[in-house]
């Protein structure tokens, strides 16, 4: 495993921990999109179907369990926990996430590397992950009042995607036959979705002012 990949996984892990910290400790999910969190739970559930059938490494299995467990518990907190539920900004989180699921499923059925159930589900999860952040970005844009933890959560998620791109470039040059257009194009699309947010995040940090997004 190269350094970019490890750093990517770690920023992904940090983003989840930041979100759990906010929800579990402060008992608030203000500014967090339940739609995005539900999409992530679906992403991990469909991607890690191999968790009990293909052993890759202890690291791999443990990380999969963490991402599955954290994504489902975040959804549980936001839907069922009395205090957390109350801080959920339901009126602004209106992105119809079903509209993302169906096109991704159709695309996975059309474009994949192997036509097997596991591989099509895996491909679906790759496509869905690329667009799953959209409800969150729309919510940030609508509320415009972004607290530090929410900003950091989205920042670390974006950092994770950028580092994975560096990881693919590294692997392309160091491993024979490492060519995966599906992952690369989806990953690139996903990273580009963060570009706007990154621009405002970094300029607010540089100027030492509170993060706001333009309407």
């Amino acid at each position: 495993m190269n350094a970019f990949r490890l750093a990517g996984d770690m920023t992904h892990l940090i983003s989840v921990l930041v979100l759990l910290l906010k929800i579990h400790t402060i008992k608030s999910c203000a500014g967090i999109s339940l739609k995005t969190q539900e999409l992530y739970a679906l992403v991990f559930a469909t991607r890690y179907l191999d968790i009990f059938t293909d052993f890759i490494s202890l690291y791999n299995t443990v990380m999969k369990l963490i991402f599955l467990g954290s994504s489902f518990s975040i959804v549980w907190y936001m839907r069922r926990h009395k205090l957390v539920q109350r801080s959920y900004d339901k009126d602004h989180d209106t992105f119809r996430h079903q509209l993302l699921v169906l096109p991704c499923l159709i695309l996975a059925l059309l474009i994949h590397e192997q036509f097997t159930f596991k591989e099509v589900m895996w491909t679906f999860s790759i496509y869905l992950e690329a667009v799953a952040i959209l409800p969150q970005l729309v919510l940030l844009q609508r509320t415009r009042n972004i607290d530090n933890l929410t900003g950091q959560y989205v920042f670390f998620l974006g950092a994770y995607r950028s580092l994975y791109i560096l990881n693919w470039i590294y692997r392309y040059f160091t491993e024979p036959h490492y060519v995966h257009w599906i992952t690369w194009i989806s990953g690139l699309v996903q990273t580009l979705l963060y570009a706007d947010f990154f621009y405002y995040y970094i300029s607010s940090w540089k100027n030492n002012v509170k993060l706001t997004l333009p309407a």
Partner: peptide, 10 residues
């Protein structure tokens, strides 16, 4: 074989 070389990513 190439098949699982990218499934090691999370």
């Amino acid at each position: 074989h190439r098949h699982y070389d990218y499934h090691d990513e999370l």
